[in-house]
């Protein structure tokens, strides 16, 4: 992390959860790592469903030395949160917002848009199914999907296109929790003897650790949170005559701290769209 911003702060915005203790863990861990590298004068997190809230974050970074605040959504895709909730709660007027007093808040792209995410997904897929022939394997990238915002599934589709182009797996497909093709239909969607499922989520929170395993049929009911169970699930799971492998989410990877910093750095080098957020 050569990029140094002694007159700037980094605000990592996560979803958080009122029911799952692991949801905010990746953001907090990455904030700690970035703080230790001393890239920014200050590093803080805020969450939609936990404390500090996005509204609380309006009170952060009041030192006159902090001229700029980079806001990086620790979200996997553009969507309802990045386009509606975060700008509204943080009172962002667009990509650039100047606060009274002249401090500038720079609204960066979400972590999931970073090009290195593709490699993280592939690494997860390889780690959980070592020695499994990719040519006899379908890779399913599972996103949330929501009727609230049509962009929510775009990032997951983009990753599938990028991985498909590598021509490694027999098939690479998208599936979603809340829109078709549904992950609960995985057996119908695939034909190969091996199916590797990688959740395209930041944390092993409510959706990736508790909901999707039920939708896959590898858990009959919602389990305790990841941090409250002694062992991670054992792969493979034998279902519908196939070997099913299920991975953990990518947001806790140490590489993600670099991704968050690079999304901030990218703001200053990207050609800016200064139009208001829709």
């Amino acid at each position: 992390m050569d990029w140094q911003q002694p007159e700037s702060a980094l605000l990592i915005v996560g979803h958080g959860s009122t029911v799952n203790p692991d949801s905010s863990a990746p953001s907090l861990a990455q904030a700690e790592a970035i703080r230790e590298h001393g890239v920014f004068r200050e590093v803080a997190c805020c969450f939609w469903k936990e404390e500090p809230s996005l509204r609380d974050a309006l009170l952060f970074f009041r030192e006159p030395e902090i001229r700029e605040v980079y806001v990086v959504p620790n979200f996997i895709s553009e969507g309802y949160f990045t386009e509606t909730v975060i700008p509204r709660e943080l009172e962002l007027e667009g990509r650039l917002t100047t606060r009274p007093g002249g401090q500038v808040w720079k609204y960066c792209e979400p972590a999931g848009n970073h090009p290195a995410v593709t490699e993280l997904l592939l690494r997860r897929a390889r780690e959980i199914a070592p020695g499994v022939a990719a040519a006899e394997t379908t890779l399913l990238i599972v996103g949330h999907g929501t009727a609230l915002n049509e962009n929510s599934a775009v990032a997951a589709k983009r990753e599938v296109e990028k991985i498909s182009a590598l021509d490694t797996y027999a098939s690479v497909q998208n599936a979603y929790m809340e829109e078709a093709p549904l992950i609960s239909d995985w057996a119908r969607l695939t034909t190969t003897p091996n199916v590797v499922v990688v959740p395209f989520f930041i944390s092993d929170g409510l959706h990736s650790y508790q909901d999707i395993p039920v939708l896959l049929g590898i858990e009959s009911e919602t389990t305790a949170a990841a941090s409250q169970r002694e062992v991670f699930r054992r792969n493979p799971h034998r279902h519908h005559g196939r070997d099913l492998y299920y991975a953990s989410a990518i947001g806790t990877e140490p590489k993600f701290a670099e991704i968050l910093v690079e999304q901030a750095a990218a703001f200053d080098t990207a050609a800016l769209d200064l139009s208001p957020i829709a």
């Binding site: 805020c46 936990e50 404390e51 500090p52 809230s53 509204r55 609380d56 974050a57 009170l59 952060f60 009041r62 309802y80 509606t84 909730v85 509204r88 609230l148």
Partner: peptide, 29 residues
């Protein structure tokens, strides 16, 4: 989380408060 900055803002007479109805009226989804 967030309580020390709120306290510091309050001491500087800069802590804006938001009525509950305004918070609720702002919600979407």
């Amino acid at each position: 989380p967030g309580r020390l900055p709120a306290l510091a803002a309050w001491e500087a007479n800069q802590l804006a408060t938001t009525p509950l109805r305004a918070t609720l009226d702002r919600q979407t989804g």
